[in-house]
Amino acid sequence: MRHTAGTLLVGLAVVAAGIAVAMLRVNPYLYFAGYVILQYVVIATAWNILGGYGGYVNFGTPAFFALGAYTAVVLIQWIRAPLPVLLLAGGLVSALLGLGIGYLTLRLRGVFFSIATLALSIVLQTMIMNWDYVGGSRGLSVLRPSGPPFGNYVVFLFTVMVALAVGAVTVARFIERSWIGRGLSALRDNEEAAECMGVPTLRLKLFATTVSGFLLGVAGAPFPYYVTFVEPNSAFAIDYAVNALAMPMIGGTTSWIGPVIGAVLLGSAQQLATVTISSEMNLFIVGVVLVAFVVLAPEGILGLVRRLRGR
């Protein structure tokens, strides 16, 4: 109980700090960049619930993210739904897709599951490209609501993303420390043995894919208001697939803090590179860092720290 209260306090403190930063009104670009980094905290955390804890590598992150974004686009076009509704709806629709890929795990394991999720992303993108209501392949401009808190919509979205990141990390931490997390590690280590030891593997996999899908969708839902122009190539960008996997791997997949470390480090490096070198350098940096980590520190920064402590 004291643990839960402590977690809640830390979470609230981070959200409060986010609001304080929003009131500081520093260089607007910092909020813009901060939003992206926090968005990656959510994405990496969500990916890790399935990929890190459960061992099912999802290459289809863009599908879930974009589904959240396009659900928001539809709701904005249709009834100009308020942001909380967009977040919830984006999450729920992606959660449904997550449940769907959960059933895929019945037949597809390992690399075959990963290939299927990658294909899913491509299929979904093709469908969106041919759907005029949401702008098709040309894309669609979205008008932000007027009169946002903090006087600036990006600053407002920044605080929203702080809260979402705290929420996602709290969920991941809760899962990790419950019987669900332990069951997921058992099935990651050996699915057949886990099932024979009484672990309801199918139910746990469906849970993981659904929660992971929900959080990815939530991360994508504010995207239309953030960029104000949504088109398939940016919503389904390969960056999401690569980063979602690279960030937890670099931070360490066995603990909730790993994806957070990875997202903050890699996300900041990418933002820095975008400004100082070129926007094309993003994925190059990820690639180099990822290869270095896979070779030198396969258990990520967490594993390195543990090794240095001599454990």
């Binding site: 019987w179 069951g183 058992a186 280590d189 057949e192 030891m197 066995t254």
Partner: peptide, 19 residues
């Protein structure tokens, strides 16, 4: 088919908790 990421004791925890 042990659970390789877990200690011997944790290996036993899985069936204790689930079965």
């Amino acid at each position: 088919k042990p659970f390789r990421s877990m200690t011997v004791l944790e290996n036993l925890g899985i069936p204790l908790e689930n079965a």
